[in-house]
Simulated scan of single mutants.
Amino acid sequence: MGALLNQKYEKLFSLLDINGDGVIAEDDFELMANRVLAAANEERTAKGQKYADAMMNYWRALRETADVDGDGRIDQEEFRQALGRVSVNFDTLVGPLYQAGFQLADRDDDGLVGKQEFVTVLAAIGVPATEAGATFDGLTEQSGQLSKERFMTASAQYYRNEDPADNASHLLFGAL
Results as ranks from 00 to 15, higher is better:
130 T>Q: 11
95 G>V: 07
96 P>W: 04
171 L>Y: 00
98 Y>N: 05
23 V>P: 00
124 A>F: 08
148 K>V: 15
13 F>I: 08
123 A>E: 15
175 A>M: 10
74 I>Y: 07
45 T>I: 08
92 T>S: 14
101 G>K: 09
122 L>H: 03
79 F>R: 02
107 R>C: 07
35 R>G: 14
48 G>Y: 06
15 L>W: 03
87 S>N: 06
34 N>C: 08
102 F>G: 00
105 A>M: 12
150 R>A: 15
149 E>N: 09
4 L>S: 09
7 Q>N: 11
110 D>V: 10
18 I>T: 09
74 I>D: 08
1 M>V: 09
7 Q>K: 07
18 I>C: 04
42 E>W: 00
38 A>S: 11
131 E>G: 02
80 R>M: 12
11 K>S: 03
80 R>Q: 11
69 D>W: 05
66 A>S: 10
140 T>C: 13
71 D>P: 00
52 A>E: 13
39 A>Q: 12
138 G>P: 07
47 K>R: 11
42 E>I: 01
19 N>F: 07
122 L>W: 02
109 D>Y: 09
35 R>N: 13
172 L>Y: 01
48 G>K: 02
60 R>G: 11
43 E>Q: 12
60 R>M: 13
30 E>P: 04
140 T>I: 14
91 D>P: 05
161 N>Q: 11
76 Q>P: 12
105 A>C: 03
135 T>R: 00
41 N>R: 02
175 A>H: 11
159 Y>F: 15
140 T>P: 00
164 P>V: 04
85 R>N: 13
64 E>W: 01
60 R>V: 15
66 A>T: 09
104 L>E: 05
27 D>N: 09
166 D>F: 14
104 L>R: 04
36 V>H: 05
164 P>K: 01
146 L>A: 08
176 L>S: 07
158 Y>D: 03
146 L>K: 00
41 N>G: 10
135 T>N: 00
114 G>I: 06
65 T>F: 02
160 R>N: 13
154 A>P: 04
90 F>W: 11
51 Y>R: 06
103 Q>N: 15
145 Q>F: 14
4 L>K: 00
135 T>G: 02
88 V>A: 10
85 R>M: 14
159 Y>V: 13
94 V>W: 01
154 A>R: 00
4 L>F: 08
98 Y>I: 02
119 V>E: 14
87 S>Q: 07
98 Y>V: 02
23 V>Y: 11
90 F>T: 04
59 W>N: 05
41 N>K: 05
156 A>D: 12
64 E>N: 14
102 F>W: 03
110 D>T: 08
120 T>Q: 10
145 Q>M: 14
160 R>C: 11
102 F>V: 01
72 G>M: 06
79 F>E: 06
138 G>A: 14
102 F>H: 01
